[in-house]
Simulated assay, not measured.
Amino acid sequence: MKNKLTTEQSSSYNNLEKMNTFELLSNINAEDKTVAFAIEKAIPSVEKLVDVIFDKMDKGGRLFYIGAGTSGRLGVLDASECPPTFGVSDNKIIGLIAGGDSALRKAIENAEDDENLAWTDLLKYKITEKDVLIGIAASGTTPYVIGGLEKANKNHIITGCIVCNKNSPLSLAAKYPIELIVGPEFLTGSTRMKAGTAQKLVLNMISTAVMIKLGRVKDNKMVNMQLSNKKLVNRGVLMLMDELNIDQALASKLLEKHQSVKNVLDNYKN
């Protein structure tokens, strides 16, 4: 029998049901604290993937995420948050989950075991060699994700992955693998915990760094954010007041006219 995957190894904690609430929370937190250090070791790998994504997207390409279960949901989440945060089209960063959107709320039986399904899903978006595909799987063994990357490789599409085991089949399939070795979970095998947290943090890093490099941010401000509610409109007004040294009334008027902070900054003449 092969060695057990790190993500499947037994928890360092025993008799969880005998712990009181404070002990449970403290021990989970102690494990969570190790995640950022595991990611730090992987920054050089993340850097390589960010740079190649930027190069492709700067030339008009797109970024795709594929995954199953928690990993798939995290990819869809990151993709869905980029349009409101950075003002990019919702077809620039696309997240796909095994089993389709229904799987975001409810497990779809056997969808992740179909090695041909991801490529079928990707073809619906007419993926090409101008794009980048990232497979997300804590175990690194999910057939849906591996199959998608292998087909992408054959079609000369740049591939990356985010996994939480070393030398997994998915890492071997990806041209730009990212391995986040966070160790056994507090609850044995529950990769929605540390592994999921690590994946979420790295997805944040990838999409945010790429968007900054693409000029979707000014200084430290989300100047391209969509003004989709009162909170964001107020945030935009405050940005303009600070950036242009103008009063609230003028900032509000300019934002209403130009419909984005960036448009105001590009067109404002003192």
Rank of each mutant, 00 (worst) to 15 (best):
I127Q: 02
I157W: 05
L117T: 02
K175M: 11
I134T: 04
A152D: 07
I146F: 06
P177A: 10
S171G: 13
I108M: 06
E109H: 15
L122I: 12
G148T: 04
P143S: 11
D131C: 02
E150W: 03
I146C: 12
I136K: 06
I146L: 09
I134K: 03
G147Q: 08
P177Q: 02
T159Y: 01
N165T: 11
D121N: 14
D121W: 14
T159P: 14
S139H: 07
G147N: 11
K151E: 08
K175R: 12
K106Y: 00
A111V: 05
K126V: 00
L170P: 06
L117N: 01
W119K: 01
L122F: 07
I136T: 14
E129H: 07
I162S: 13
A152Q: 03
K175Q: 11
I134L: 13
E179A: 15
I158W: 04
Y144L: 08
N153W: 12
I158R: 07
I134E: 02
E109M: 13
V163I: 14
L117E: 08
H156I: 02
H156S: 15
T142R: 05
C164G: 04
K151D: 01
G160A: 07
I146Q: 04
Y125Q: 05
A152H: 02
L122T: 14
T159Q: 02
L123G: 12
L170Y: 08
I178N: 14
I127S: 01
N167Q: 12
I146M: 02
V163H: 07
Y125V: 01
L133M: 09
I134M: 00
I162C: 11
E179S: 13
K130D: 03
T142S: 14
N110I: 00
W119N: 08
Y125A: 02
I136L: 10
I127C: 08
T120I: 15
L170A: 08
K154G: 10
